[in-house]
Design a protein around this nucleic acid. Structure first.
Lengths: 332, 332
DNA sequence: TTGAAAGCGCTACCAA
DNA sequence: TTGGTAGCGCTTTCAA
């Protein structure tokens, strides 16, 4: 079970066993085989805690996402994990459910585990979180939300551009009454999308009207937000959602009211998750390149030959993807 | 940074600091405050590796899923995590991508981390994996696949029942030509669903014909499998999928061929993931109660007052949920 | 109520 | 090529 037992059985010192197990330093082939055999017989499994404690460093990067139900975050995780693995790093995925308190707890755990770096893909990172992160001295990358500074990078999406494209697209189709459905509007990062929408809409303040509603970050959250909208009086012809995950529920809710997209109401999402292609009608959305973000994150987190990358900010321009859920506004 | 530094600053021994930090043993209130203050000033973060190493045990349960893209597994994880948290356990989610090799590696890591237990929700667990697990001496629960034995429980779904209900439903609607779309048919656990379908279909061997196709466990996998089917000659009027995740893609692919469900082809899924309600037409499926499975898993994994639960097998009967994607077979 | 000290299992350095 | 051994940071007796 322990290195020492293996050493005893093999008739060598623990130092030698360690060398064999880690393929480090010179070991005579015969000794090597003897040790391996002993380890196998004893079904030796190195204690990772002891190893990390003795070694000092770890090859583990922690990623925390707001909501693992939303495939958007899973996509980032997968790409990031693949990239990290190429450099010999393991990544563990944690989630915070949009709770600042949970986030703090998760970060604490990750720091306690002596993670080699942190990828923070959450909407609830405020100053206190950033402060806590800074004190941890760990390299950190924010994906959406947070700010760049020494040792901390930020990968952002230019929501202004994305939302502007959505609104222009819809405006061009004749839409004048909009609804924006968001989630966690109390959180700065989540609010960015709302603000981007508002700004884009205000460019047409002369003839555009809109309402903002809030729901959970889930299809059902989208449904519920839409219900609010439908009760609100303003009968929008276009519904812009903070993300695809919510938009998917909007489509369902519309249908249950006997309304159809895009004939009665146009619907747009954001993110371009895979599901957006499989709903009906296929969702018009804005592509947020998770793989590119993940690669950038990996680059910022993993020490390169040239030493550790300095904290910097990268802003990504998203692209409009027009599919079937948006169309000409109904006259009247 | 370390316990010792805190002790020095507070002018006490490390033993006392440990007591304070862990709220264990008697400590004079004034001392306690002094220590806490020192810890705060130093921004002390306990090293979890040292703690686990010294303490011997951990409150961490590892869960490994085949495919974290499939929301089915995420649902299990979330319910399980909630349940585990109530008992003071943390759970870490890992994935194996249906690779036996990756699974073995992940298990090794978890064992090396001295997990308190393992929840194995994979299709690729064969004898060698079970053997490895048995040797780890850890309490293990299989969710779908695997076998019960000393210290190992298995939570299974009676696929035979579920598939039979699907087939009977479809047969009753007049369908006689079927296709079954599955994934990883080389893996025993994944094959169970196929076998269940086959058995159900064979009950009507007199007048039912069917083909089996395989794709990835993803919507695109479903699409591709359907393409095979459409090329196969047998023009099925009903497509039964191994799970909803694949079925979702089938709906999309059908549409791209100008076919519509359920008018031209009926489609049924399995699992009842949330998305199945949001596709169009809403998917007829079989409910697999993830929350119940997760609770059973937690019960089997977490030591109760009555000592550690013995390995046992629980079989769950799934229920048919008829929605809009299935309908009467087209005459002809 | 507090402290000293013996580990937990492993790595890494220094000698041999 | 090998062994001895001093830690890594924490918990936990056992004494004081």
């Amino acid at each position: 079970m322990t290195l020492e037992e293996v050493a005893r059985l093999a008739g060598v010192s623990t130092a030698t066993v360690s060398r064999v197990i880690n393929n480090r330093g010179p070991v005579r082939e015969s000794t090597r085989r003897r040790v391996l055999e002993a380890a196998r017989r004893l079904r030796y499994q190195p204690n990772l805690h002891a190893r990390t404690l003795a070694g000092g460093k770890s090859r583990m990067i922690g990623m925390v996402a707001s909501n693992i139900d939303n495939p958007f975050f899973i996509d980032i995780f997968r790409s990031f994990e693949t990239e990290a693995a190429r450099h010999g790093y393991e990544v563990v995925l944690k989630h915070s459910d949009y709770s600042r308190k949970r986030l703090l707890g998760v970060i604490e755990t990750l720091v306690g585990q002596r993670a080699a770096g942190l990828l923070i893909a959450v909407a609830e990172a405020d100053e206190s979180v950033v402060e806590e992160l800074r004190e941890s001295k760990l390299p950190v990358v924010f994906c959406d939300g947070g700010w760049a500074s020494e040792r901390m990078s930020a990968i952002k999406v230019r929501y202004a551009t994305g939302m502007q494209r959505v609104v222009e697209h819809l405006y061009g189709l004749g839409h004048r009454r909009f609804a924006f459905l968001g989630h966690h509007l109390g959180l700065a990062a989540a609010r960015e999308r709302e603000r981007a929408f508002t700004e884009a809409a205000e460019l047409h303040s002369a003839d555009v009207r809109y309402v903002i509603e809030e729901g959970d970050d889930s299809p059902d959250g989208g449904r519920q937000a839409l219900q609010q909208v439908l009760r609100s009086g303003l009968a929008p012809t276009a519904v812009v959602c903070a993300n695809d995950f919510m938009a998917i529920g909007v489509l369902t809710e519309l249908r249950s009211h006997g309304l159809s997209a895009p004939d009665d109401v146009s619907v747009a999402g954001f993110d371009n998750i895979e599901f957006s292609r499989h709903v009906y009608p296929a969702l018009t959305t804005v592509s947020v390149p998770r793989d590119r973000m993940a690669r950038l994150a990996a680059f910022a987190l993993i020490p390169q030959e040239s030493g550790h990358p300095k904290g910097r900010e990268v802003v990504i321009d998203p692209e409009l993807i027009v599919r079937e859920s948006t169309g000409p506004a109904r006259p009247g």
